[in-house]
Write a protein that binds this DNA or RNA. Structure first.
Length: 188
DNA sequence: AGTGAGATGGCCT
DNA sequence: GGCCATCTCACTA
């Protein structure tokens, strides 16, 4: 299971290295397993696209000020949730958004590669909501493992982040990472 | 295939 | 009150 050392590093590196890792959700005695194929890095107080830009600290963002390895979940557009993992330490409120994954096991179908393509769908299908916000990675709830699957660096794309026009120039920073040619990855 | 609007509620100023 | 780290459906063509 991935733990503290993995997350207490540079957020960009964590975002890149989360590609290919298995995300495991335990829910009502079942196990949902998916392989991460798209992530985004949010770089804290100096990143105009980040919830903690300028050190903003509110009830919602409080989770990002926890140590690396905590789960940060917020609601968006009144009906979707987004799953993030906190990185670095309490002084650096940064996180990685999980945007898409490939269904591996436990879903009604693993044929539909688009089932988990997008942060909102991923949370909906994996039964992830705000009840998990602020928890540390937990094998009885939600956690990550490295099963040895490798994503070659040449097989990863760096792209601008999605849906943050208010961030100005920062919306173009190449902090979105995706597995090349994977059909769960939406737009280029 | 591509565009546009609506859903819907918590969060922030 | 206005804005969202989104998605789906209905429309055009």
């Amino acid at each position: 299971m991935l733990s503290a050392e993995f997350f207490e590093r540079s957020t960009k590196k964590v975002a890149q290295e989360l590609l290919g890792k298995l995300l495991i959700r335990k829910y009502r005695g079942k196990e949902l397993v998916a392989r991460i194929v798209e992530t985004e890095a949010y770089l804290g107080i100096t990143d105009p696209g980040c919830h903690t830009y300028n050190g903003r600290r509110t009830k919602r963002t409080e989770t990002m000020y926890l140590d690396g390895g905590h789960i940060y979940i917020y609601m968006i557009y009144g009906m979707y949730h987004c799953l993030n993992f906190v990185t670095r330490d309490q002084k650096s409120p940064e996180a990685v958004l999980i945007r898409a994954a490939e269904p591996i096991q436990g879903f009604k179908t693993t044929q539909n590669l688009k089932l988990l393509s997008g942060p909102g769908k991923l949370c909906r299908e994996m039964k992830i909501d705000k009840k998990l916000n602020g928890l540390y990675l937990d094998p009885s709830q939600l956690y990550l493992i490295d099963d040895g699957f490798k994503v070659n660096k040449r097989e990863t794309l760096s792209l601008p982040r999605v849906g943050i026009p208010y961030a100005g120039e920062a919306q173009y920073w190449p902090l979105r990472f995706a597995v090349k040619n994977h059909s769960a990855v939406s737009k280029l």
